[in-house]
Computed example of a mutant assay.
Amino acid sequence: MTDLLLIALYALGAGTAVGLGGMLVLRRLTGRSIAVHIGVLLVVTVTAVVAGVATVAQAMFLSAHDLQVVLLTVLAAALVSLAVGFTFGRRLAAAAMWSAQARAQERRLEAGRRELVAWVSHDLRTPLAGLRAMAEALEDRVVADPAAVAEYHHRIRIETDRMTHLVDDLFELSRINAGALHLAVAQVPLGDVVSEAIAATAPLAAHRRIQLVAAESGWPVVLGSEPELGRVVTNLLVNSVRYTPPEGTVRIEAGHDDQDAWLAVTDTCGGIPEADLPRVFDVAFRGERSRSPEPTGTAGGGLGLAIVRGLVEAHGGQVGVGNTGDGCRFVVRLPGRPQPLTRHRAGSAS
């Protein structure tokens, strides 16, 4: 009984000494990654076991050969334990990191949803109040002058179109986020898509005195869904036109490299603050501009670029933005080897 007590005391003393050393090391590593803490914990645990066994073996007055066998056996077991422990620790650290990233992403999405609800509520409540006031004025015959009545009808149509566009954007974004977007993939001449987008954007560009310039050649044929690609190009052009000062220029061009086709829209908006660049494609992000609708009724709900990113990613591509001189440049990259370039002229407008 005395021998067992002594063995226990020897093992406890060796393990306690190693454990106290490990605690001091862990205190110094405060703030380090979970992988580091797991690694230190494994080393301390295995070292405590090895120290306890070695101390007890020496106290038992084993022969040199027997002591060597015991120590080799313990060291082999320690190496296996460390290898298994480090493998598990890396997986646990990776899972913890992924979980932390998922929680951070969830918080960002939740914040984006709250911001979206607030902005959409504002963008709907303001025109609805105006529509109601104009409708009541017409109903009560407060406005009787034919020119004023025509102006009221014109404003009602503009606000109705703007709200319809906002609801369409919300529906499109909900389809993208819900994974309910079904692409009818085919060979799409990118030059034709750009021509239609320029035609759709030309009235807004003319109203704001913005010149739309398209490259005369170099338009590849890409694999994608034509309606969704048209929405991508139109949203990029409309966004650039809205943020470019009068007498500015918006240029669109395309090409391809070894693997990808690309399309770029460059404007003279004056650039985007560096702090805002990572958020440009977030839902409801509109930078430092006022959240109030523009007088022309052309302001969007801050969803256009979010839709662009969703549609491009649905094609397996990527979209990015950067500052270039006196403006910024949006670049869409679509994967897959594109077909030979066409000489199609996309056209321009001013």
Rank of each mutant, 00 (worst) to 15 (best):
V120G: 10
R155D: 12
E216V: 09
F281A: 05
G347L: 09
V120N: 12
G224C: 03
R125Q: 07
T249E: 14
T55G: 09
D326T: 03
H153R: 15
T87G: 15
I158T: 07
L29F: 10
V321C: 02
R157N: 10
V283D: 01
P246C: 01
E253T: 13
V74D: 11
S290L: 05
P340A: 08
Q211R: 15
H256S: 07
D326L: 00
R231I: 02
L229H: 05
D257M: 08
S225M: 07
G22S: 09
H65Q: 15
N323R: 01
Q339G: 10
I252M: 07
V80M: 08
V70G: 08
A184N: 14
I38C: 06
R157G: 14
H256F: 06
L42D: 06
H207I: 11
I198R: 06
A197R: 01
V167Y: 13
G270D: 04
A214N: 02
L204H: 03
G52V: 09
T244L: 03
V213I: 14
A264Q: 09
L190G: 10
G322S: 08
Q105R: 14
P245C: 06
S217A: 13
L183R: 01
T126S: 10
V241Q: 00
D192N: 15
A57N: 05
A54E: 14
P203M: 05
L341C: 00
V70E: 08
R125L: 09
V49P: 09
V149Y: 04
S99Y: 13
N177C: 11
A261E: 00
L334M: 04
E115L: 13
F88T: 11
V250M: 02
S195D: 12
P246N: 01
P340K: 06
G52K: 04
G21E: 10
G230M: 06
G191A: 06
A197D: 07
L128R: 05
F61E: 15
R286T: 10
M60G: 08
A8V: 14
A100L: 09
E172T: 15
A215K: 07
R343C: 07
P278T: 03
P146S: 01
T249I: 09
A205M: 01
A314W: 01
A118P: 09
V188D: 00
R32E: 12
R345G: 13
I7A: 15
P246T: 01
A314M: 02
V56C: 13
L263H: 03
A299H: 07
D3M: 14
T201H: 01
L5Q: 08
G300L: 02
V40E: 02
A78S: 11
V142Q: 14
A104W: 08
R27P: 10
P340V: 00
P335S: 01
E115K: 12
G230Y: 02
H154G: 13
L181D: 04
V74P: 12
Q318V: 05
G21R: 08
T47M: 12
E274S: 10
G112S: 07
V221L: 06
V283F: 08
G22L: 11
V280T: 01
R242C: 00
T249Y: 09
L334W: 03
V319T: 03
L277H: 02
L341F: 04
A147F: 12
A180V: 09
A346F: 03
A261F: 06
R333Y: 08
R329E: 05
V213L: 15
G255V: 03
V44T: 13
V185R: 11
V332D: 03
L341A: 00
G224M: 00
A102C: 10
T30N: 13
A148I: 06
H315N: 03
G304F: 04
V250S: 05
